[in-house]
């Protein structure tokens, strides 16, 4: 079969391959190269070595601030989202009427696009803050917690569904055995339930991690970095470096490469961790 099929390479692979090359592969290689050059257009470049990378950190505080803000936001999001999602999953797996309806409602925000989500919460948060005669751009902490709430609203339902699947996979005998041995509810939760859903915990942690770390649309729509770029996350800072200031495209591309390396590192760690868990269970 392989032999006859082989001749059909142009039909089966070419359309996807060409599209992939044009929109991803070639731009990726060009991007790597351009991060070492000073350029205003892609065809007009001048090799400058690592100076873009140095400028990304030293020319101003934007990138470092964005990195700090992103890390802070990511950590808070991971903790809040996973704790709430896990509690919801626990509540919903206690056989009860209407479970499906709740699941439907909690999952829904996940499907709405980032820009729309950002403006929904912009309206809501500004509506609340109006009672104190301020708005979301008044102080960076409003923007920060606004983003955290938005992210919770968007991802809790998604993570909850994964946790529910994990919880339902726990064999009932284990819990029954624990009950017979006289374990309290708390003991059953910490000694049986949580260890048994660890694979789901790993998946959800990394899902919230990458989603929060790469956040762009929600950030743009909710605060657009205001006040004074204090709520600007990495992806938005990269965008603004590219398109906000002429002559800074090289620096923008260097920041993008650093961003890529960070994201790839996270993915790599995840692969190692989940791979190991699969062997264990």
């Amino acid at each position: 079969m392989q032999k006859t099929l082989k001749k059909y390479l142009p039909i089966f692979v070419l359309p996807t391959g060409v599209a992939f090359a044009i929109s991803f592969l070639i731009p990726f290689v060009m991007g790597l190269y351009l991060s070492f050059t000073k350029f205003t257009t892609v065809t007009n470049t001048e090799w400058v070595g690592f100076s873009n990378y140095i400028r990304a950190f030293t020319a101003d505080d934007n990138f470092v601030n964005a990195l700090k803000f992103t890390v802070k936001f990511t950590i808070v999001s991971i903790i809040t989202i996973n704790v709430f999602a896990f509690i919801l999953a626990l509540l919903l797996t206690k056989s009860m009427k209407g479970t499906n309806l709740f699941r439907t409602v909690f999952f829904m925000p996940n499907l709405i696009g980032g820009i729309v989500l950002g403006y929904i919460w912009n309206l809501l948060i500004n509506g609340v803050l109006a009672y104190f005669s301020v708005d979301i751009t008044y102080d960076a902490k409003y923007g920060f917690w606004g983003l955290v709430i938005l992210m919770n609203w968007q991802l809790i339902g998604y993570m909850m569904v994964i946790y529910i699947a994990g919880l339902q996979n726990i064999p009932n005998d284990l819990k029954e055995a624990a009950a017979i041995d006289g374990a309290t509810n708390r003991q059953t939760l910490f000694k049986i339930t949580i260890p048994m859903v660890m694979p789901s915990v790993t998946i959800c942690t990394f899902l919230t991690l990458t989603n929060s770390f790469k956040l762009f649309d929600q950030n743009l729509a909710l605060t657009a970095g205001a006040p004074a770029k204090e709520t600007q996350m990495l992806a938005l800072d990269i965008f603004n470096t590219f398109y906000g200031r002429t002559g800074w495209q090289g620096v923008g591309q260097a920041k993008a490469v650093i961003f890529f390396i960070l994201v790839a590192l996270i993915a790599f760690i995840q692969l190692r961790l989940t791979g190991r868990r699969e062997v264990e269970t």
Binding site: P27, G31, F242
Partner: peptide
């Protein structure tokens, strides 16, 4: 694994 920001500028050019 590659975030969109990595290729957005050069992709706009090729496209």
């Amino acid at each position: 694994v590659v975030p969109f920001q990595m290729v957005m500028y050069t992709m706009t050019f090729t496209v």
